[in-house]
Write a protein that binds this DNA or RNA. Sequence first.
DNA 1: AAAAAAATAAGGGTTAACCCTTATTTTTTG
DNA 2: CAAAAAATAAGGGTTAACCCTTATTTTTTT
Lengths: 214, 214
Amino acid sequence: MKNCALDKNSMTILIADDHPLTLYGTQAFVTSLGYKVVHICTDGQEAFEWIVMHQPKMAILDISMPQMDGLEVLEKLHQRGISTRIILFTMHKEATIYKRAKNMGLSGYLLKEGSEDELKLCLETVAQGGKYMSKLILKEVNKHQTSESEELTFAEKKVLELIAQQKTSKQIGDLLFISEKTVEKHRSNIIQKLNLPKEKNILLHWAMKHFIDK
Amino acid sequence: MKNCALDKNSMTILIADDHPLTLYGTQAFVTSLGYKVVHICTDGQEAFEWIVMHQPKMAILDISMPQMDGLEVLEKLHQRGISTRIILFTMHKEATIYKRAKNMGLSGYLLKEGSEDELKLCLETVAQGGKYMSKLILKEVNKHQTSESEELTFAEKKVLELIAQQKTSKQIGDLLFISEKTVEKHRSNIIQKLNLPKEKNILLHWAMKHFIDK
DNA sequence: AAAAAAATAAGGGTTAACCCTTATTTTTTG
DNA sequence: CAAAAAATAAGGGTTAACCCTTATTTTTTT
């Protein structure tokens, strides 16, 4: 039954994490499971270049990394149509980040606070062509779905991104070539859709908590 | 020369980190150096209780942990006069956090992005009674010293903490039993001392970036 | 082509954050 | 005990964020 058994040794994996001890810990664990770790690195730029060049079967990427974050790596690989299966292994439990990644051909999303067993299961699933999203992040997404029932439109997301970068409505208007008043309208709509409490600066606060800022 | 050589096997160590793979990675590395890892756990509450009960020689604590964060553990141990030497091993590069910890008898501060060698050197130094603070965090502190030349007073710190919790000046006044106007004055003084740019909500923004909120 | 959804814009109002100045009281320190 | 530093408070002003309403244009869907 050779087609049933997983040939782990042919599953080449790249691991990228900017925390050396986590990196080595993950490498040791993944190797002990029988997979072939072909490259490790501590920054996103290197991870991206290595993946483009050597196209390993899978890659385990942290999100917070210097030069280029894991989401950017995923996005750029996705744009180039590279078939390396990407697993994000990160501490970011934000539903927003997960949702962004999900639309870019992501194969797995794990939280660092999760167990080793989860990583093992995830690797098996992804190696066989499946997708594995941590229950922890799905729970987080569900929590938000109740209040975030209505999805944000493209324009609203754009505005939210700029709010997270501390731009004022005026500045956002200039950047998007729309009136300040329109930006304010978008702000109100976002607050309504997200069902945020009536507080000053509530949007800035929310945006800062849910976006990775550069 | 027995008194020169370090008896690593008598150096009992507790390690706490809420990311299992980092925890096991650290444990494996520390053990490989010859130290005796007597307990590992993934939350601060357990770490605190174990340390109080068994008083190991050293403890390596992450800051972000469920139940009780590393800083709180350090603070409570310090208040009780427990002699376990604490090393914070964390991803928080904020100067403010380091400064808070420094005044609580801290023995070491390492960043997760630092190398294994750094952890090795730190353990040796602390085992011999010394203190080891990562160059990475000291650099961060220096960066802020230029702009943060004047230290914040106690009242200002208190206000800043509440700002990070999204309280308005009015709410802060009520909480601290002082006038809203006084709070506003503190805000202005903080902005001046930190040399922050003249922008709306700049304090909320700064406070959120530099404080761990609950 | 009509209906629905999204984006655009404006007028008008409230509030909190920030700025500046002045001034009194309390605490710390030489 | 003076002098310096910190905390307290108030008046008065500007601005950005948010709220509500109405309305036109553009895009998408049926």
